[in-house]
Amino acid sequence: MKNFLLTMSALAFTCAGTLSAQAQDINGDATAGAQKNALCTGCHGIQGYHIGFPEVHQVPKISGQGAGYIRAALHAYKAGERKHPSMRTLASSLSDQDIADLAAYYESNGTGVNLPAAAAEGSAKAAELLTKGGCTSCHGPNLSKPIDPSYPKIAGQHADYLYVALRSYKINDKPLIGRAHPVMGGIAKQFSSNELKVLADYVASLPSEMQTVQRSRFK
Rank of each mutant, 00 (worst) to 15 (best):
Y169K: 09
K174N: 15
V183S: 00
S192R: 03
K189V: 10
I171S: 04
N194Y: 00
D173W: 13
V198A: 02
D201Q: 14
K170E: 13
V198D: 00
G178C: 11
M184E: 06
A180Q: 14
A204Q: 14
N172S: 14
D201K: 11
D201I: 05
E195L: 03
H181I: 08
E195K: 03
K170D: 11
L196W: 06
Q190D: 08
F191W: 03
L176N: 14
A204M: 12
V198E: 02
Y169S: 08
P182K: 00
G186M: 13
I171E: 05
P182C: 01
N194I: 00
S193Y: 04
G178I: 07
F191Y: 09
N194E: 15
N194M: 01
L176V: 13
I187R: 06
D173I: 12
F191C: 05
A204T: 10
I171V: 14
I187T: 09
S193A: 14
S192N: 07
N194T: 06
K197P: 02
I171L: 06
R179W: 01
I171Y: 05
S192P: 07
N194P: 00
P175H: 08
I171G: 04
M184W: 03
G178Q: 08
V198I: 09
A188P: 00
V203T: 08
K170F: 05
Y169C: 09
V203W: 02
K189S: 15
F191M: 07
P175S: 13
M184T: 02
A200D: 01
V198Q: 01
D201C: 10
I177L: 10
I171M: 04
Y202A: 13
Y202M: 13
R179M: 09
E195D: 12
G186N: 14
A180L: 12
A200M: 02
F191L: 08
N172D: 13
M184F: 07
N172L: 13
Y169N: 09
G178N: 10
A200I: 01
L196Y: 06
G185E: 04
K189T: 11
V183N: 00
A200V: 02
A180W: 05
V183F: 05
P182T: 01
V203L: 05
R179N: 08
K170C: 13
V198R: 00
P175A: 14
I171C: 05
L196C: 04
Y169E: 09
N172V: 15
L176A: 15
A180R: 13
E195M: 03
L199C: 08
L199F: 06
Q190H: 10
P182I: 04
G186D: 12
L199R: 06
K189L: 11
D173R: 11
L176T: 15
S192T: 15
S193W: 03
M184G: 02
D173C: 12
N172E: 14
G186A: 15
D173E: 14
I187Q: 06
V203P: 02
H181W: 07
A200F: 00
G186W: 10
A200E: 01
D201R: 08
R179L: 04
K189E: 13
K197W: 09
I171H: 03
S192V: 06
Y202T: 12
